[in-house]
């Protein structure tokens, strides 16, 4: 009976409860992984490798010159693994989009998309400058 009547310690339990809630709230606010994943780094390297190699003889710039978007897309697709999604956007030197339809192999398969910009120069007499933006993603 004496224990039930004595309510002095209840405040401490409430304090402890609030303190626990405070600690748990702090833990919940710890930032999740913010550094880039290994696969994202590899994808960026992959994109650079593909663009540099395909354009080593000016092939990509020639395709852009002739607005051969389907061929350009197939070229990129043939150089990437089957499980890699890509989307290519071609800009002129004023960053106006040149391709009048999407150059990609379907819808993105992941939220983690890397983007690489590549500048290529036409080998024709106009020496037009293009910016190719290649976005890649793989299944998580």
């Amino acid at each position: 009976m004496r224990l039930l009547k004595n309510k002095k310690g209840q405040v401490r339990v409430i304090e402890a409860f609030f303190a626990s809630m405070l600690i748990l709230s702090c833990l919940a606010l710890i930032p999740t992984q913010s550094s880039p994943k290994t696969s994202a780094l590899n994808l960026a390297w992959k994109a650079q490798n593909v663009l540099l190699t395909l354009d080593s003889d000016g092939h990509l710039a020639n395709l852009v010159d002739n607005h051969e978007w389907t061929k350009l897309g197939k070229c990129i697709e043939s150089s990437l693994p089957l499980t890699t999604w890509f989307n290519l956007t071609v800009f002129d030197k004023n960053l106006n989009i040149l391709n009048d339809f999407s150059i990609s192999n379907g819808g993105s398969i992941s939220d983690r998309i890397i983007s690489v910009d590549y500048i290529c120069v036409s080998q024709s007499s106009t020496f037009a400058v293009y910016v190719l933006q290649l976005q890649l993603s793989v299944m998580d």
Partner: peptide, 25 residues
């Protein structure tokens, strides 16, 4: 006294939560 039980109980809760927090961290 009853307050000693309550204090002990409150401390136990805090220590437990602190341990879980440290393990999580």
């Amino acid at each position: 006294p009853t307050s000693s039980f309550d204090t002990f109980f409150a401390c136990t809760i805090i220590v437990t939560v602190a341990l879980i927090g440290m393990a999580f961290l």
